[in-house]
Every structure is written in structure tokens, then in C-alpha cells.
Design a protein around this nucleic acid. Structure first.
Lengths: 180, 180
DNA sequence: AGCGGCATGTAAGCTGTTACATGATTAC
DNA sequence: GTAATCATGTAACAGCTTACATGCCGCT
């Protein structure tokens, strides 16, 4: 799974601009994929060059012009090829878990603060997914609902572990430094 | 957080070879970091060149020679600099969630099979973490235990969502294709 | 006879990020 | 007046992966 597969998938649902695509990343895809504009625009350009998508420039009033991209038949074919290809393993990379893993080399207080921040941040992401879920649950396909549930349950589990962790570290806080 | 930070952290616990480091990735770090040998060996080389670590070659009988690396004082300083630097956002990229997200363009049967595989795979990872947790819980620091708990609870939540998802898709299976 | 574990390393290439560059409109 | 939203793009570079290359030992 790469940027181009996700973009093709989004265009399967209808024409979109690069900006629209990035919005989707942030709203309903963010819990399993994200990429910057520095990836979106060059990818669109490349997909257009290989005729998998087509560009139409929309002149807007009061707003900058917009490049609306649509998927072509070749693009659809390419997307189905992705959809039925073998599944790649997930990639999860977490700095906060690394700080926990090596936590004994630091101090309890700053770890607790960082966990609190991590909780707040995940609560915000959870709220966003819950919003999307309840707003659109009537019009979303069964598998898409599962992908949103995954994100929500995942965040809930993470928040719960972090909150218990904070309690636990607080109860040992008198140590300040660990010796293990 | 990059490969070099993790390697430095592992060497804080004692000397290790590139092979040992990769083993650690697979056992107790795998749920939040992984990298191939093609990253491990060049990184070690570069860290040695900048005097953050030192190499000692161990001649072994019946086994290939081993390069044991130890962290230097400069390396420790560098590690602490990482440990107290701002935390980077997590990165999660999931192909199976993408397949769910775009599931309406495929068929229910193959999605169900893929979810079943995903469950089995996560159950194996969970079992591995549980093993590590119960084996070493006496000698691990509080924060490290939290990092393992995180992995375990995360996998449990994911397995649960996937299992419920399989049930749900099965109940709609007669459709074979969706129209939303 | 062959596979899995132990052990190290390189080269080419892919995929993405960061930082830069631009600029109008709308809401506070 | 200033921040956010809408909107597009490039160039340099970082940081990995994949595939290749080597070779002995112990088990089955």
C-alpha cells in the first residue's frame, strides 16, 4: 500500500483535487495513513502522466483555481490490481513507546507529563473518529464502518493503558529515578 | 526517533552485536519499531565512525565472528539528548485497514479471509508479548512494563474488532458485493 | 541432502519528508 | 491586522528497504 493506491481509491469515489485528498487523509483515513502535500501533488502528477487519472482545471471565484482529478479506466484496473494483491504487514512506529521502553534512563515526572499529553492527543483523535462515525454511519459500507471501529477501539485501548500507567508511575513517584 | 536512537538505547543496557539488536527488534520492540539488517549494520558503522560506539571483535568457535559494540560516553550523551527531546507523532500505516476502507469495491468473502489471517497473525504477536511479559516482569522497569502492556492491549482490541467484523460481514455475506 | 540459525555486509533504489515559494479571501 | 482556509507546486535530502553476496554449524 502506497500513496498512489490510496489516491486511486479515493478517486474511485469521485473526482477530487489534491487538497481534497489531503483533507480525507486527515479526517477519515488518518488513523491508518497519512502523507504530506509533498507526496500528494507529485503523485498526482505521475498518475496523470501514466494516464491513470485525468485533470480538469476548475476556475473558481474568490478562491484559487482547482485541479480536479478523475480516475480513468486504466486507473480503475490498476486500483483493482492493488485491491486483490497480497496484504502488506502493518507498520507501527511509536516514539512515546520508545520513551517508555527506555524510561528507566529518564525521570518519572517528565514521563508522566508526556503520557498525559499523549492521552489528550488520542482523545482528540478518538473524538474526531466518533464524530465521523456517527455522522455518516447510515451511508457508509459495512467494511468502512469496521475500519472506523478499529481506529476508535484502538485509541480507547491506548488511552486506557496510558491512564493506568500514569497512576502506576505516580504511586512510585517518590523514587524519581529507577534502578533496573 | 530513528534507528540510531533505538540502537543507542539498546547499547545503554550492555554490549551487543548487530545480530543481537535485530533479535531485540523482533522480540520486545517489534510492536513499536522494526528495521532490517540493511539498516542495522550501516547505522552501527556510522555510529562507530562518529565515536558514539566502540567495536570489539569476538572470535567464536563453531560460530561466525561477532562484532560486539559498546556505547561510549559521547554516545550516552547523545542518547540522553534524544531521551529529553520533543516526542514525535506516532506513525501507523495499515494495509488491511485500507482494504477495509475500500472494501465496497471488492467482495465480502476475500475480505473475511483476510481478516481471519490478520487475527491469527495478531494472536501470535500477542502471545509473544505475553510470554516476554510474564517471563521478565520481575526484572523489568515500571515504564518498560507499560510499553509491553500497551502492545498487548492494543493487539487485543484489534483482534476483537476484527472478530466482530468477521461476524458482521458473514451475516451480510449473501450480498457478495456491496452497493454503497 | 537440505534447511534453519548464526553472523556480516553492500549497492541501488524507492518513497516519502522538510522547507521553500506564492497568493487571494474570509472571519475574528 | 492577523490568522486560518483554500490551493498548488518544487528541490534537496533523509531514511529506509530489497536484493544480493558469503559461509559455517547442527539437526533431521
Amino acid at each position: 500500500m502506497q500513496a498512489k493506491d490510496i489516491i486511486l481509491g479515493l478517486l474511485m469515489q469521485g473526482p477530487m483535487s489534491g487538497y481534497d485528498i489531503k483533507q480525507h487523509y486527515e479526517v477519515s483515513l488518518g488513523h491508518f495513513f497519512d502523507a504530506s502535500y509533498g507526496s500528494v501533488y507529485p503523485t498526482l502528477k505521475q498518475l496523470e502522466k501514466t494516464a491513470l487519472i485525468e485533470k480538469e482545471t476548475i476556475i473558481q471565484e474568490g478562491k484559487p483555481n482547482k485541479n480536479l482529478y478523475s480516475i480513468t479506466d486504466q486507473g480503475k484496473e490498476q486500483f483493482y490490481q492493488y485491491l486483490f494483491s497480497p496484504i502488506q504487514a502493518d507498520i507501527y512506529r511509536s516514539d512515546i513507546l520508545a520513551r517508555l521502553y527506555f524510561g528507566k534512563f529518564g525521570d518519572a515526572q517528565s514521563l508522566i507529563e508526556r503520557l498525559q499529553e499523549a492521552v489528550i492527543q488520542r482523545q482528540a483523535q478518538l473524538a474526531q473518529l466518533e464524530h465521523a462515525y456517527h455522522m455518516h454511519k447510515q451511508d457508509l459500507s459495512a467494511p468502512r464502518l469496521i475500519s472506523l471501529q478499529f481506529g476508535m477501539e484502538d485509541y480507547k485501548a491506548q488511552i486506557s493503558v496510558f491512564q493506568k500507567g500514569i497512576q502506576y508511575l505516580r504511586s512510585e513517584e517518590s523514587f524519581e529515578f529507577w534502578e533496573r
